[in-house]
Design a protein around this nucleic acid. Structure first.
Lengths: 115, 115
DNA sequence: CGATTCTATAACATCGGATTTATTTAACAG
DNA sequence: CTGTTAAATAAATCCGATGTTATAGAATCG
């Protein structure tokens, strides 16, 4: 697992790039065109970060460089999350929140009832 | 969903804090002590980032502030990942990688055979 | 070959995040 | 109320990531 997959995903633009690549390879230029506010070298750098994080694959074709999703990096993130998934899928989490709220209310009543 | 959960998770220290909080609430001081290389205010700021990302909950008790996991933020990350999960759980991804490798080898033979 | 197209890299500016020291707020104990 | 402990905020610094312009590299076409 690439240790910086989280860092790569921390940028919204890069997440959007991945969304564009969902099941559909696209050229670097195509991806750049999807973000008019970012220069061509800017997109190229984003793609490099994604590449080095193992999140995309690149393949030369004709004059283009075609990028596609490579889920290794995402699988690493998913593996980290997996530890917690059972936690919120059980309703333990919500239950604790509820108990916390009750306890807080008990310890600090809303009205000026107790001196 | 807190939009900056990804950003919060991009820092390794914060991920380790979440690991420490797995099913076990801990005080701010306890968490700080687990990272001797980080100052008290430094940890406090990390905790704030986690709080604002909806990843932890805090509860005052005695003189301490007890932090615990709050999976809302993680669930948001998980929801984003979910879109891709089916993709790598099927072996479509590995298959494509294989085909890419074959195609690349065909288009660009290893030896300096062709002028 | 020379021109053109597509993309990556270099060099540089800038902005934000991480960290630190110093200070403040909050909750108690005496 | 005074002092003490726990934790958050303020202010300043530092470093890395993002973004830009300019340039280089790679493939293709005429």
């Amino acid at each position: 697992m690439a240790p910086d997959a989280f860092a790569a995903l921390s940028d919204p633009t890069r997440r959007q790039v991945l969304d564009l690549l969902y099941r559909k390879e696209r050229s670097a230029g195509e991806l750049g065109a999807a973000f008019p506010s970012i220069s061509q070298p800017g997109m190229s750098r984003h793609l490099r970060v994604l590449r080095e994080a193992g999140l995309v694959r690149v393949r030369p074709e004709h004059r283009l460089r075609l990028y596609s999703l490579r889920t290794e990096g995402l699988a690493g993130v998913d593996a980290w999350l997996a530890k917690y998934r059972g936690f919120w899928e059980s309703e333990l989490d919500a239950l604790e929140a509820h108990l916390d709220a009750r306890r807080a209310a008990r310890e600090r009543p809303p009205g000026p009832r107790s001196p």
